[in-house]
Structure formats: structure tokens, C-alpha cells
């Protein structure tokens, strides 16, 4: 089976973000980068599928500047077989449709049987790219999956996460695409022997111009910090005094201590 995993390199969300000088995205200097959390589940699911079926081949693709190679190495050490780095210094300038176009252009004609993506990125968060790739390639696509089983070669039983603790059970026949929700599995650590093996795996480089096509359908006007809504009270200081103040407030404003 030929498997494709798409992943994005994103800043650690605990970082202190600064707005870039053009005001349209965050400044990407001085940030710690990691694999988009949702995509780690996608990588793990791909590797599990390969382990289940044997005789499979996993390509991991990422679009971005030089640094995304770090993330791809980790995916290779987790069990992907080859990396495809689509070199693009400013992927944040592209909208979801433009990113999906690049991925679809790569996948077209390569006959992937199964494609995994994260359900969304932690930074942009549009949740569109995976589904758009599915549409562009004419593949069935199931989003927000929290349970995945492959029965036989190409039959999948999927659970989608809905609201309020409800899941929808869906069956599709491959080739197909899946967007992975948090908690789908437990992503593995790349073990030391696999890190050593990853060194020898192929990491292809493709200039983005070879795959990109069409412009954006939407434009980021600006990125900004939300205004703090007033009203909330900020308590700071020593722990015992904080506790006393909070108890006084709860007595005054709520009935729970009555």
C-alpha cells in the first residue's frame, strides 16, 4: 500500500508570539518549532497501518523553509520511509486552497492508496487542507477521525468525533483520505535505532514552483492580539492572601459557600 502523510511545522503554542513587520503573520524568529500536534497522530496512524499490512511505503510531505526538515526527520524516525520537502520560504502567504493545490499536484499520478493529514494546524487552524486535497484528487475524505480500522486491503471503518461525546461510524473504501483528531492514537517516540536508520532514508527536495498553481481566494489583512475584555478581576500576590481574597469574593458574588 502506498501511504502519504502531510504535516506542518508550527511554533510551540506556549511561545510568546510577536506580530511580523508586515502585520499579517507572526514573526518566525525566536520560536521553538515542532510537528503540528494533529499531524503527529497522522504519522502514527500511517505507521500503524503499515505495521498492520506489511509491504507498504510511507511518504511524508511538508511545505516550508529549510527548518521543516527537522520535523520530517522525526517523522522518518517514527517510521515513515521517505520525505518530500516542498521548499517554500513563506507558506503562510498561501491560503488553504493554495496549499492543498500543491499537495494534490504532488499526489496526482502517484497513486496513493491512503492519505493522512492532521484535522487542522495549531497556528492557522482552518481545518480545510486535508478535505480540499481529497476533493481535488476525487478521493473520499473523512475528517476528525478518532478511531481507524482497516479491514482487508481497502475497506475502512472510521469513527468521526462529533459534539457532546457522540461519534459517527462511517465506512469508506479506499483510496481515501483521513484527517486526524487529537487522541486518535498514542504517537510513539522515535527510538534510537530508528533515529539512526532515519539518517539513511531518502529526503527529496522539490521547489514549490513545480507544484504551485493558481492564486489565493482569501487574503490575510492583519494578525493581531485580541483585546482584553474588561470586567474580570486580576488577583496577584502571596498565596495565603490570594486565597482569603478569593473566598471573600465567592462569599459576596456567589451562593456556593452559603
Amino acid at each position: 500500500m502506498k501511504i502519504l502523510v502531510c504535516m506542518k511545522h508550527v511554533p510551540d503554542m506556549e511561545s510568546k508570539f510577536k506580530i511580523s513587520t508586515d502585520g499579517r503573520w507572526y514573526d518566525d524568529g525566536d520560536l521553538a518549532w515542532r510537528i503540528n500536534e494533529y499531524d503527529e497522530y497522522a504519522v502514527e496512524q500511517a505507521v500503524r497501518l503499515k505495521e498492520q499490512l506489511g509491504d507498504s511505503d510511507i511518504t511524508v510531505l511538508s511545505i516550508g523553509p529549510e527548518r521543516v526538515k527537522e520535523a520530517m526527520k522525526k517523522a522518518l524516525a517514527m517510521g515513515c520511509d521517505r520525505g518530500v520537502h516542498v521548499v517554500d520560504d513563506r507558506p503562510s502567504d498561501r491560503d488553504a486552497m493554495a496549499i492543498a493545490t500543491i499537495i494534490a499536484a504532488f499526489a496526482r499520478g502517484r497513486n496513493f492508496d491512503c492519505i493522512f493529514t492532521g484535522m487542522q494546524s495549531q497556528d492557522r487552524g482552518s481545518g480545510q487542507v486535508g478535505l480540499l486535497v481529497g476533493e481535488m484528487l476525487g478521493l473520499p475524505a473523512v475528517s476528525t477521525i478518532v478511531d481507524f480500522s482497516c479491514i482487508g486491503e481497502h475497506n475502512y471503518t472510521i469513527k468521526r468525533e462529533l459534539e457532546g461525546g457522540v461519534r459517527a461510524v462511517v465506512e469508506v473504501r479506499g483510496p481515501a483520505l483521513f484527517t486526524c483528531q487529537l487522541g486518535l492514537n498514542t504517537p510513539r517516540y522515535p527510538t534510537l535505532p530508528n533515529i539512526m536508520k532515519a539518517k539513511k532514508k531518502e529526503l527529496l527536495t522539490v521547489p514549490v514552483a513545480e507544484l504551485a498553481g493558481g492564486g489565493n481566494l482569501q487574503d490575510t489583512v492583519r494578525l493581531f492580539f485580541p483585546e482584553k475584555k474588561g470586567g474580570g478581576m486580576l488577583l496577584e500576590g502571596e498565596v495565603p492572601q490570594l486565597a482569603d481574597k478569593l473566598i471573600a469574593i465567592l462569599k459576596e458574588k456567589t451562593t456556593v459557600l452559603a
Binding site: 488553504a96 487552524g125 481545518g127 480545510q128 480540499l132 475528517s143 468525533e161 459534539e163 482569501q218
Partner: peptide, 23 residues
């Protein structure tokens, strides 16, 4: 922006050649 909406909206946008703006 729900499990139904975010699943269907991009597919429709693709078919319409439309921008889809999420959440």
C-alpha cells in the same frame, strides 16, 4: 463551525471555487 460544518464547508467551497473562512 462544527463537525458537520467544518467537514462540508471546504468541499462546497472547492466545488464553487469559493474562499472558505473557518471559525
Amino acid at each position: 463551525h462544527s463537525s458537520y460544518g467544518w467537514d462540508l464547508a471546504p468541499r462546497l467551497a472547492m466545488a464553487l471555487g469559493a474562499a472558505q473562512i473557518s471559525e
